[in-house]
Design a protein around this nucleic acid. Structure first.
Lengths: 330, 330
DNA sequence: TTGTATGCGTTATCAG
DNA sequence: CTGATAACGCATACAA
């Protein structure tokens, strides 16, 4: 198992040609006589020769690989995102590296270290420090995924401002007066924009927003915790706007577990429109973002090559308000 | 953005030393005088020099990278698995590649192609053809993840035979007579073993098992479909044993959606013990497997180096029966 | 302690 | 159409 691989030289020896000819045959380019080609191909086939990606990458000064950096693989959002990225990259013939930061101290170093192995890196918003990001971009093409463009670093993201539309819907169409926001803007550009859109809608509607968001993580368990915080006292908010679907589902579970009725006692909304959101009762009102497409677009951008004159600096994908039962809609 | 990287030669020039000395300093090994070291380190720091992983890998004949091949990133099982693998590999200083086959025709080729970029590959059971697997193992160390060892290829997996214990519990403790099995053994070694354990328990209990499993996929939506198949007629099974939690949750949703009571009208069990399984009502009776650990162990094995004399050929992690409400337990 | 020279596996540029 | 040879960026045995 794991035998020595043969090299061009050995194949050349075996086929009685030069290494240049082997290279031409194995890549299918250049002028080679049919007989020579056939002979070399036979030897290659016989010995299962496969050119070393390493040697090739070194000679071509190009890795044929891209990387994606994200905090962790928790929940359907990141699964979809990575899947979209990976699929698109593989289709384009690029190998895919992943780096989960997992809030490790060494994460920034790991990200910098990987810059020497890839032609481009997609960094999920809020996973590494800004200075690390800048330094990284000085070494290799970078795209910020789910974050804002920074200096010369382009971004691919979804339109978070639609949270304003959702908030208006809750305030104006349903008449809720006291809304809560669940999610931590620190460290997540997405959550920051959603919180800002939430505030913006309050200002426009001349309704007093909560002073602060309820700062919890992005996982379902965090939603359960949030429900505990928000729904204990007798005077709880009429509607809870969550930064993503996973926390919203956690809040939903927490609310139902407390014997509250949704949306009669409390309305709940999310962001993402993950699969589960249409399956729960009541269905979760949310904002659909094309997560998979987000990953795919990022991969395409990275492979096409970022930077250069007239390059795309900011790609914002549209989102869509999805009304289900949890906000009070029928 | 994406500037030219400096090479050893340039740093050597700038520091007024040879490339060998730069290499020694950047690797922190070998004998270098304190003054020289300090001078070189200053130049390295100043210019943000970082040795090319490529050149290094080529010279050391070692990539410092491992890969994991899996069908797709659907659901918490694969998220956890990859996370365990990735975390462990990064801790060990190895970069991580991922390859999703997505049932693509070119998948086998992609897997073979990546063999030239890594020091070892973990292949999830049932994702590529056996002959591809053998061929791959001839080129690079391979570990089968969630499958059986094959020839010289070692495996890391969970103890699926515990499904027999679960099945006995349903047959003997609860007295169900007609059980159904949801899952497609073809193409998944795990499901094959679970189905066999299911049959085995029936034989031991002298109860007639169903002739065939209900062959659907592994996702929640497949469970919903399965519920449609199994729960339409008046005479449905008393208990439904699902190949994994995700389908079980789908069946649960389908059952509740039909107005059936769980477990009174139909019992449902799963496999994995994903987070959601303890949150739903009734709680899902299932078998807990250490998914994350599975990924971690695989990464460790790959990095330690497979093959060689006295190497571990088969690692089976223990599983645990988790009784909750969905089987009829209080 | 430091430097020189060679090799790692490929591609690419020239001659022939 | 084919071959010799120089990069590519680094590590390392060997020499100084």
């Amino acid at each position: 198992m794991g035998n020595q691989r043969l090299t061009v030289r050995e194949i050349a020896e075996l086929a009685g040609v030069s290494i240049a000819t082997v290279s031409r045959v194995s890549r299918g380019i250049g002028q080679v006589s049919p007989e020579t080609r056939a002979r070399v191909e036979r030897v290659i086939e016989e010995h299962g020769y496969r050119p070393s990606q390493l040697g090739r990458a070194l000679a071509e000064r190009k890795h044929g690989a891209v990387a994606m950096v994200f905090p962790g693989l928790s929940g359907p959002y990141f699964s979809e995102l990575i899947q979209g990225f990976e699929y698109e990259a593989m289709e384009a013939g690029a190998s895919v590296h992943i780096v989960g930061t997992h809030h490790r101290a060494a994460a920034d170093d790991d990200v910098l270290a990987i810059s020497g192995r890839v032609d481009g890196i997609a960094v999920h918003g809020g996973t590494i420090q800004e200075r690390t990001l800048r330094r990284l971009a000085a070494e290799v093409p970078v795209v910020v995924l789910a974050g804002r463009p920074l200096d010369g670093i382009p971004a691919v993201r979804a339109d978070n401002s639609r949270v304003a539309e959702l908030t208006r819907h809750l305030l104006l169409d349903h008449g809720y007066r006291r809304l809560a926001f669940v999610g931590n803007p620190h460290g997540s550009p997405d959550v920051t924009e959603r919180w800002e859109a939430f505030l913006q809608a309050h200002r426009e509607a001349k309704v007093t927003p909560p002073k602060e968001p309820l700062q919890v993580g992005m996982q379902q368990s965090d939603g359960v915790i949030a429900a505990g915080e928000l729904l204990t006292g007798r005077r709880h908010p009429g509607a809870i706007v969550c930064a993503n679907d996973e926390t919203a589902l956690g809040v939903l579970i927490g609310a139902l577990g407390r014997g509250l009725k949704v949306p009669e006692d409390v309305a709940i909304t999310g962001f993402d429109d993950v699969a589960m959101s249409s399956l729960v009762r009541p269905g979760l009102t949310t904002i659909r973002q094309p997560v998979r497409e987000l990953g795919a677009v990022t991969a395409r951008l990275l492979i096409a090559g970022v930077g250069g004159p007239g390059a795309v600096m900011d790609t914002v994908l549209t989102t869509e308000l999805v009304l289900r039962g949890s906000c009070g809609c029928p």
